[in-house]
Amino acid sequence: MTNGRSPSQANLQTVLIVEDDQLLKLITRDIVEEAGFSTLEASDADEAIALLATRSDIAMLLTDVNMPGSIDGLKLAHTVRARWPHVKIVVVSARGDISTGDLPVDSRFFRKPYGIGVMVSAIQSLIGSGSRALANRVYLDV
């Protein structure tokens, strides 16, 4: 069953960051906001699903895999693909055993540590260039 609404593209500018490590969450928020997007934060999949159920402006899910809670980040990604198909998905993890076959279709995976440039580039190619002034800056890791 799809509970997701289909909001217009105009107000899709928020990235939902799901990460249980507070410092990593802070850093990820900085990266995403530097790229020109608003952020919402959750510490586990349950919090993330609660936010997705009440907010219509979430354009992208950026989730870690290993987290406490009822489901991990991979299951969260599949749940989001099924219930909110318009939400773009980026999965990050330090785990070496994750392959594209584990991910929902049309999602991206980055192994930690990832470069900021490729992450920003991926976010921008998935949901646009962002609305804030900083989005116009060029990010390259090399």
């Binding site: 990593l24 850093i27 900085d30 990266i31 192994r111 930690k112 540590p113 900021i116």
Partner: peptide, 11 residues
């Protein structure tokens, strides 16, 4: 280690 390197690299 990977998470720590992510934090260092990102900062």
């Amino acid at each position: 280690v990977a998470n720590s390197l992510q934090i260092i690299a990102s900062i």
